[in-house]
Structure formats: C-alpha cells, structure tokens
C-alpha cells in the first residue's frame, strides 16, 4: 500500500497529540492516507474537543469514596471483569485443562491398577498363560453365542471372578461421581455383570458384604470368567466386534476376546484412557 518514506517531514502540521500521530508516519505527504494515519487524525479530531469536566470528575470521585466506605471494592472478580491480556488468560485456562486431564488419567490409572491387582498377582504365571489360549479358542469359535446367554460371574465356583468383581466394586465406590472413570471398560463390565447400571450399587453391596467369606484362592480358571464379562460389555457397545479387534475400541476388545483377565483389564483401560484424552480435546 502506499506508504511514503520520502523523508520530508512536515513539522508543526500535527498539532495535537504529537506522540501518537507521528508514530508511524513521519511524513505521509498528501493524499494517500493509510489507515494508521486516518485513525490518528480521526482520533485527534474527536479528542481535540474534549473539555475537562470538573463536576463529572467530582461525582465519580464521590461514588468512589462511597463504594470504598461500604467495602464494595472487595467484591469478587466476575468473568466479565477479567481483562488480563489474552495470553495470560489462555495460559490459565490451559493449566486448568492440563490439571483436569491429569486428574482423569490418574483416576483411570487407579482403576487400571485395581483391575490388574484384582486379576491376581497371586496367580502363578504359568497357570495364567494357559488360560488365554483355551478361552481364545473357545471364544473365537462362538463369541456371540456365549456372552449374552451365560454371565459367568454369577457362577459360584469362580473365585477369581469374584475377587475381580470385588475389586471393581471398590473402584466403583471410590470413583463414583468422578466423571470419566465411570465410562471405562471396567465399569461397563461391572454393569454387565450386575445386569444393569441401576443394579450396580446393590450388586456391589452384596459382593463386598460376602467378600471376606471367600478366601479367594486365585486359580487360573478365573480368567475365562472375566473374559466373558468383558466380552458381554463389548458386545453391548459394538456388536460383533468381539472376534476381531477393531481399531476403534482397539486393544481392549482384542485382549478381552483372548480371554485373559489381566491383559483385558489393562488393555481396556488403556484404550479408554486414550479415548477420554481425545474427548477432552
């Protein structure tokens, strides 16, 4: 655009507000008036006519004194009163976002740890290793036939499942009302096991009450039971996804259909944490 730097200053032409007007255009000879110059001139023209108004100032000062006297100046800042520069406000906001993300991940992490612990660090690794292959073969044959029909968690002869459920119930107690943790895979499994979201509280109360009676001798057979519960939940979310781990819900389902309780729990929570992270954005 037509900026002129022809050097020839025109001193004295801009009388009022010299500090503002000469800022960008020391010369700008004639005619081609860019926005900055026009703004400066307009501003000068409007402000030039200002006459100090002593009475108005006194009224304002009186109002100030009155407000100060009655303590109005200690009032809380509302959102519309916060005129800090944008960067700082945005920084504050991003700090808040980061914090909540951190909290969410910690909560989910807690659920994941609970799930890992529940599936039995007491179990011997060899025993556990056998179970996935068993259940995987079973599951891949007829995944949909088994899962809705027979919720194995109701079977009394699966101590591993029982302990797992207890752990989830405890996690449920702790995480209740804390948002995203309740959407996790573990939670969905728990819902599936209880037979409905409204049933969970009652179900858990019953479980936890009877928990000490069960010594919880963790045997490897606990794993398939959990695999079933997991698959039931998965079936509810995405029907038919149980057999082939679809990328959307990812590892959780793949591992779940493999039937290993431990890895199912980890994978499920892992996938869910990633999902919730995505949702936050």
């Amino acid at each position: 655009m037509g900026e002129r730097q022809s050097g020839g200053a025109t001193p004295g032409r801009r009388r009022a507000h010299p500090d503002r007007m000469t800022a960008r255009h020391p010369s700008a000879p004639q005619a081609v008036l860019d926005d900055a110059a026009l703004e400066a001139l307009l501003s000068a023209a409007v402000l030039r006519g200002h006459r100090p108004d002593a009475a108005g100032e006194q009224r304002a000062l009186a109002a100030y004194r009155a407000a100060r006297a009655e303590g109005a100046h200690r009032a809380r800042t509302r959102r519309r009163d916060d005129w800090r520069p944008r960067e700082r406000r945005r920084l504050a906001m991003s700090a808040r976002t980061t914090l909540s993300l951190l909290l969410a991940s910690l909560t989910l992490g807690g659920v994941a740890v609970a799930a890992i612990n529940s599936s039995g660090p007491t179990e011997a690794p060899e025993e556990r290793r056998t179970s996935p292959s068993e259940s995987a073969s079973r599951r891949s044959v007829a995944p949909s036939a088994q899962s809705p029909a027979a919720p194995r968690t109701s079977r009394p002869d699966h101590p591993g499942t029982a302990r797992d459920t207890e752990a989830k119930c405890r996690a449920y107690d702790e995480a209740e009302g804390r948002g995203r943790a309740m959407e996790s895979t573990a939670w969905q499994r728990l819902v599936a096991a209880a037979g409905g979201e409204d049933e969970v509280a009652a179900y858990c109360a019953e479980r936890l009450a009877t928990a000490p009676a069960r010594p919880g001798g963790g045997r490897g057979t606990g794993a398939p039971g959990d695999g079933t519960a997991g698959n039931g939940a998965d079936g509810a979310g995405t029907p038919g996804a149980g057999t082939a781990g679809t990328p959307a819900t990812g590892k959780g389902q793949g591992a779940g259909s493999a039937g290993s309780a431990g890895s199912g729990g980890i994978g499920g929570n892992d996938g869910n944490a990633r999902n919730s992270g995505k949702n936050k954005d």
Binding site: R59, A60, Y64, A67, A72, D81, W83
Partner: peptide, 25 residues
Amino acid sequence: ASDAWLEIARDLGRFTGDGAGFRGW
C-alpha cells in the same frame, strides 16, 4: 458517561487487568 462512572467507581474492586484492559472494561 456520568452513569457509567458511578458503576465503574462501585465495581472497581472487581476489575482485573492492566491499563489497556481497564479501557476495555
């Protein structure tokens, strides 16, 4: 403007920001 200044004087304690922010507020 007089009305506005009454409100400004009353709510001054609520304001947060710098000089430019005060102009906006």
